[in-house]
Write a protein that binds this DNA or RNA. Structure first.
Lengths: 347, 347
DNA sequence: GTGAAAGCGCTAACAT
DNA sequence: ATGTTAGCGCTTTCAC
């Protein structure tokens, strides 16, 4: 069925070795033969066989990305970054996504299939000891996006700083009873953001009040869901006195929180202010104040690191931490926007 | 480096054929040997080599999906559908995405790399004669999502019906000067939706007025962009008399249109109503009335068809057309929503 | 500069 | 039930 180098070799009157050489434009091949081979190849519409190449070369031109919960638009931006950078390289992208965290292990295993991919990009995945073991044993280049482990390259965000900036901003806007909606207690980013939150409060001479911090019990996606955000807000609204502002650890949750506030008959930000984290696409349209993560750039850089490591497996491990940026919109007082919500806010 | 069947065969005291048999749990292998092989394999953490398998089997367990413009969240939903269905199969997914349509040809070629993928999913890609030729010659199973060609399996949406429903709805709500913002004049879905639009107008005894139809000159993504929508709306607002409602052929454009209306100081839907097409995730939050495409389901079905065709290359070609569904929200009068915009609208 | 030949790790007849 | 062997299509020494 497929045209092979044998076909070309025959028609061009050369050996298969020469054909191979032409395509790997390696060692010297006379211009004449090269031209002849190329011509025949074009004529026959020759395409090298991907699997045969990987097998013979002992390396593949595929990299895998494991992306949890594509429903969260955070990851879509990351994915775009990966794609764009990868398009400039020789590598193609295998995408493994997990609708629930439970499937994570299976997907990792699938992605680690020997000879399949030259490297692995892992997004927002809390690494268990077992994972780390498996990854290290596989010997595959691995880059972590939006998570951290000392032994793997990573690109992430300064979560503590983000929590601090968000809270500090609320303080500066004059809010005095600042609550927080966190994710699952085991989620590292959530924990770090909370540290920043508490720091800002303390620094402002305010008390950290356990009663104003709601933690999600949702194991599904560590509670980074709209639903969990809604539940969190409902819980917060029952507190007396009611918080006048709340820092939500993700935009996805913030969306749910906003809805819950609306359903409770409260106006945002007059009755209660909300600030999120991530700056997913929806946030702009909803007018949600938030801390922006440069997701697209993180994706691009992750690929950069991966390609580097594929080439130089012994290159020292590096960790890049981006700074989150405060984006002030309509769900907090003090927005600098001059046009009307929700369509007046550019990025 | 990698553990091969030779290693296992040796340690288990059998031939490589037997090892292979165990893993392809094919023909009868005595329970004893099978157990022994499996044990050794586990011990050595054996994993079959993907490329070697594809080469020997003469088939791969990869399928490719070409997704234009991932920035448009329409495709993310499709991608989720693809993923979810694929996860249940033996196939892994290669994703090729094109930031601009210009890269399309390159990506198709890349995806068609011989021996790479067992099939190809093509989303929203207007097929040129050349494409069709290339695809047919490649002999690869192809399924079209959100586009149509008689010679390939496809799953798409009834665009004309959608345009009709949207317009008819506006008519029923009492609007009398109904404009339309189309995409690039060559875009087939846009053309079809316009047919429906005109049909509804005529049926209602209204005139089709060229002056109220704005066509995008944006070649980038056939004009399915926020920016193009904004420009379209601006043009429409200059008409006298100004339209009192407008059917926009995509939510992405509708978003831009809404923004433009806001900037012109108009209220939606009081001064001008807007209805879109797609029901992307953002639409719900913005309160945009629209026609829903079951994107996720379309993705799933596309995979279904592809898997079927991979198994039965000669199976007759089939085309599935989904019916769009009207989703009434706050950008048109007559929304059935009872809570306040923009957070009060569930799906 | 070019060719012969030995793999890469596996599958799939064909034997036994 | 298990072993032998010939590929799959390519890359890559090693000769000439």
């Amino acid at each position: 069925m497929g045209v092979t180098i044998y076909d070309i070799a025959e028609r061009a009157g050369v050996s298969i070795a020469t054909v191979s050489r032409v395509f790997n434009n390696s060692t010297r091949v006379s211009d004449a033969t090269r031209a002849r081979v190329l011509m025949v190849a074009r004529e026959l519409e020759y395409q090298p066989h991907a699997s045969a190449q990987s097998l013979a070369r002992r390396r593949t031109s595929l990299v895998s990305a494991i992306i949890p919960m594509m429903a969260n638009y955070f990851f879509v931006e990351v994915l775009r970054g990966l794609q764009d950078r990868l398009a400039e390289s020789e590598f193609d992208l295998l995408v493994y996504s997990t609708p629930t965290m439970a499937e994570m292990d299976g997907q990792i295993e699938r992605a680690l299939h020997r000879g399949r991919a030259a490297g692995l990009l892992l997004a927002s995945t809390p690494l268990t000891k077992n994972h780390v073991e498996a990854l290290k044993r596989s010997g595959q280049p691995v880059v972590l996006v939006d998570s951290f482990h000392a032994e793997f390259d990573s690109v992430s965000i300064d979560n503590e700083q983000g929590g601090y900036l968000a809270t500090r901003y609320l303080v500066d806007q004059g809010y005095r009873r600042i609550g927080m909606i966190a994710a699952h207690p085991t989620s590292v980013p959530s924990i770090q953001r909370r540290v920043g939150y508490e720091k800002a409060l303390l620094e402002a001479g305010m008390e950290v009040c356990e009663d104003r911090i709601v933690v999600s019990s949702d194991r599904a996606f560590d509670g980074y869901t709209e639903q969990a955000g809604g539940i969190g807000m409902q819980a917060l609204l029952r507190r007396k006195p009611r918080p006048d502002a709340v820092f939500v650890v993700s935009d996805m949750q913030a969306l749910g929180a906003l809805q819950a506030a609306g359903e409770a008959g409260l106006r945002v930000p007059e009755d209660i202010a909300v600030i999120g984290f991530d700056d997913i696409v929806v946030s702009k349209y909803v007018g949600l104040s938030t801390l922006r993560q440069p997701m697209y750039e993180m994706g691009k850089l992750a690929v950069e690191k991966l390609l580097l490591r594929i080439q130089h497996p012994d290159h020292p491990t590096s960790h890049t931490v981006f700074a989150p940026r405060l984006i002030s919109r309509q769900t907090t007082r003090g927005s600098s926007s001059i046009s009307s919500a929700p369509f007046g806010d550019g990025r």
